[in-house]
């Protein structure tokens, strides 16, 4: 079996760009998902009438349908409703739709993990509900949700490969292009796998390090 190393190297400039697209889609989706989740989690925690049922419904819908189908819905079905979006926009919308739902649950679980006794002890020194939220609940909920939050960031970033299906020129799309043009299936998938490890592994390690530092800073072991 031949293994064309020279060919693999020649594709690297194209992959440079592709990695840029992957990171761009991933980072934007993480930020927008987090914003959606903050809003939704607040609604859930405060049990805002009517709205919290809506949020619950959204979370269940988004978590129980496959990402690829959500993506096809946004990219292929919405135009027939008069809403035409580019592949890139469809990618961001879909990843936010799914990511927002997962992160909502993470944040809600974080708030609920703060012991009720902490609320009573805060109230007993006269804190208002707002002060309680700001000084007692949110700092502890944040720390409690960090591991799950970071795991979901990495998960979202990995899921960006799905958007290759709507021609967003990220790493998987670039790989499939080369395979289609040159039939170098083995080499290209090797490059792709290697790239994934190079991007996602350091990121996972960095987040784990951050998580430890932050938890240490907050609870002082």
């Amino acid at each position: 079996m031949s293994f064309d190393t020279a060919f693999m190297l020649s594709t690297l400039p194209a992959f440079f760009k592709a990695v840029g697209v992957t990171l761009q889609v991933g980072v934007i989706a993480i930020v927008t998902s987090l914003l959606v989740a903050l809003l939704n989690a607040t609604i859930l925690v405060l049990r805002t009438p009517y709205l919290w049922r809506l949020v619950k419904g959204y979370v269940e819908l988004a978590r129980n349908t496959p990402l690829l189908i959500q993506l096809f819905f946004v990219y292929f079905a919405l135009p027939s409703l008069g809403l035409k979006v580019s592949g890139f926009a469809a990618a961001i919308i879909t990843l936010t739709f799914m990511g927002g739902a997962y992160l909502t649950e993470v944040l809600r679980a974080g708030v609920e993990a703060v012991p009720r006794a902490q609320l009573e002890s805060g109230r007993s020194i006269g804190l208002s509900e707002g002060q309680l939220l700001r000084h007692v609940i949110l700092p502890q909920a944040g720390i409690l949700s960090l591991p799950a939050l970071f795991a979901n960031f990495v998960f979202l970033l990995k899921e960006t490969t799905v958007v290759s299906a709507v021609a967003v020129p990220e790493i998987l799309y670039t790989t499939k292009n080369y395979i289609a043009l040159y039939y170098k299936t083995y080499e290209m998938l090797a490059v792709l796998t290697l790239l994934c490890v190079l991007i996602f592994l350091p990121l996972s390690l960095l987040l784990r390090y951050l998580e430890r530092r932050l938890q240490h800073g907050q609870f002082g072991h």
Binding site: S121, I125, Q218
Partner: peptide, 22 residues
Amino acid sequence: WRQVRQRVGMVFQSYHLFGHMS
């Protein structure tokens, strides 16, 4: 009650200090 609680101190069985604060 916020005003009353400042005049009535309460200590609990399991202390309930804020774990994220010194």
